[in-house]
Simulated scan of single mutants.
Amino acid sequence: MEDLTLDPQLLKDLVTVTMPFGKYQGRLLADLPEPYVVWFAQQGFPEGKLGKQLALLHIVKENGLEPLLDPLRR
């Protein structure tokens, strides 16, 4: 995975962008269940921006940092 230098927009995307496909299509990325995000981490994240967003979400969820997203939801 390429460098995930923290881009504030990537964090904002987690609470504004919806999953474009699959079982959780239409759900905000930040609201995806952790097992689903872990599955992506094991299988490989998609290419491009969505892959970066999901990789960042994996880091957030893996480290229990979801409360950091709360102010961005407002």
Rank of each mutant, 00 (worst) to 15 (best):
L10A: 14
A30I: 07
P33Y: 05
W39D: 14
Q43L: 14
V60M: 07
D31S: 09
L6K: 09
G44N: 02
K52A: 11
L29N: 01
P46S: 02
G44L: 05
M1D: 13
L65P: 04
K12V: 12
F21V: 12
R74F: 11
M19P: 02
V17W: 07
E62K: 03
F21M: 12
L28W: 06
E62P: 04
P33V: 09
G44Y: 04
V17E: 10
A55V: 08
Q25N: 07
K52H: 08
Y36G: 06
L56S: 03
W39K: 08
W39G: 15
Q25M: 10
E47N: 08
L6N: 13
P46R: 00
F21D: 12
K52T: 06
K23P: 01
E66L: 07
L68R: 09
D31M: 04
L72A: 05
A41L: 06
L69D: 05
D70I: 10
L32K: 02
Q53S: 12
L68E: 15
F40G: 05
L69M: 06
G51A: 14
A41I: 08
V37R: 00
Q42W: 03
P71K: 01
T16P: 02
F45P: 00
F40T: 03
F45T: 01
L56G: 03
V60Q: 02
R73F: 13
K23T: 14
N63F: 15
W39T: 13
L32Q: 03
M19A: 12
K12D: 13
A41H: 09
Q43H: 15
L72K: 00
V17Y: 12
L14S: 05
G22F: 13
L56M: 08
R27Y: 08
D7C: 08
W39F: 14
L29I: 11
L69A: 09
E62L: 14
L6Q: 11
G44I: 04
L14Y: 05
T5D: 04
L11Y: 15
E47Y: 09
D70E: 13
D3F: 15
I59L: 07
T16V: 14
G44K: 00
L50D: 05
K23I: 12
V37E: 08
V37Q: 06
N63D: 12
P20V: 04
H58R: 03
K52L: 12
G26A: 06
V37L: 11
W39H: 11
L72R: 00
R73K: 10
G64W: 01
Y36K: 01
V37N: 10
G48S: 01
L65E: 12
L11C: 14
P8E: 07
L11S: 09
L29G: 08
E62D: 15
Y24S: 07
